[in-house]
Amino acid sequence: MNDSIWRRVSSAPLMIRTDFSHDGEWTRLMAAVVEPQTEDEFEADVEFVDDKAFEGVTAAQLRQLVPADSRESFAFLADSQTFAHPDRPILVVQLQDWEEDAEEQVGEPGDDTTFRVIPSEMHSVENNLSLANMDWEEFADAVDDDGVFRGFPE
């Protein structure tokens, strides 16, 4: 795999397909992710990666692929668990933990570096993490018992 996916013009987080056994479901999943979800038509802004070079890639493997000089802090994986579950929960992967006022990475990925999100809530995760309106922990702490973020209680 080359690292060209990390060196691109777009600043949108990546949504990487790692399971290639469900072509129709992948198409429906992409449509669900970018569908406006609120009255204000908020939607997830992601760059889809549909490249068999990523087949079977895990969160841990993905972290190893991120170049040291990358500013990517998170990505989404559409893996076999995404397609096996009726809610299609997408894996959110914390790639790097950046201090707000620092130019260097802090800490190493630990156990709290992934959670899942249903497609209709991806806009909330993507928008807020991209803009640093909310922290990773706010979403990770709000997952259901099965590890899936389905939105904040009203």
Rank of each mutant, 00 (worst) to 15 (best):
N2G: 01
D3G: 11
S10K: 03
I16W: 09
I16N: 08
D19P: 03
S21G: 09
D23W: 06
L29T: 01
L29P: 06
A32E: 14
A32D: 15
A32T: 04
P36R: 01
Q37V: 13
E41Q: 01
E41P: 03
F42M: 04
E43W: 05
A44F: 06
V46I: 15
E47K: 10
D50L: 12
D51E: 12
K52F: 14
A53K: 13
E55R: 02
V57F: 14
T58Y: 12
L62N: 10
S70W: 06
R71S: 06
F74M: 07
F76E: 10
L77W: 15
L77I: 05
T82S: 06
H85R: 02
H85L: 00
P86T: 07
R88M: 07
P89D: 02
I90R: 12
V92G: 03
E104D: 02
Q105I: 06
V106C: 01
V106H: 08
P109H: 00
D111G: 06
D111P: 04
D112E: 13
T113K: 06
T114S: 12
F115L: 01
F115D: 00
F115R: 02
V117F: 08
P119E: 15
P119I: 00
S120T: 11
M122F: 13
V125N: 07
V125R: 09
N127S: 13
N127H: 10
S130N: 11
L131R: 02
L131E: 01
A132S: 05
N133A: 08
M134E: 09
D135Q: 14
W136N: 11
E137Y: 09
E137Q: 15
D145M: 01
D145G: 12
G147L: 03
V148A: 00
F149A: 02
R150E: 02
F152E: 03
P153L: 08
